[in-house]
């Protein structure tokens, strides 16, 4: 199986994540799309770790996971706070800063 197979999969998943961010209005789903993008990147990392016989890629993935966990904790806390204030998680309603 060529490694570019995994890289292509990673690329497609990454673009799908971007589309999720661009298309969905639900802030939680946008957040999930971010996770999907992380995952795509992770897949690329692991693939390269395999290709170059280096553990670094995997360790990096591990760090990404830890940071993603932290990010999700804060992010979801923000969602809850936003929901308390706005009564919605529609990201398009958070436009108080529009010019």
């Amino acid at each position: 199986m060529p490694t570019s197979f995994f890289l292509a999969l990673s690329a497609i998943m990454f673009v799908l994540g971007i589309l999720g961010v661009l298309l969905r209005r639900n802030a939680l789903v946008i957040f999930m799309s971010l996770e999907l993008m992380f995952n795509a990147a992770n897949l690329a990392f692991v693939t390269f770790a395999n290709q170059y016989q280096l553990l670094t890629g995997q360790i990096f993935v591990f760090f990404i996971m830890a940071v993603a966990a932290a990010e999700v904790a804060v992010g979801l806390a923000l969602m809850v706070a936003i929901f308390r204030n706005k009564g919605s998680v529609d990201i398009d309603q958070l436009n108080s800063l529009k010019g």
Binding site: F63, A66, A69, A70, A73, V74, A77, L78, V80
Partner: peptide, 15 residues
């Protein structure tokens, strides 16, 4: 990363 996790924990609690 450990520090980030710790601060995220505190941040989530505060938020």
């Amino acid at each position: 990363v450990a520090f980030i996790l710790l601060s995220a924990t505190i941040g989530a609690i505060v938020l």
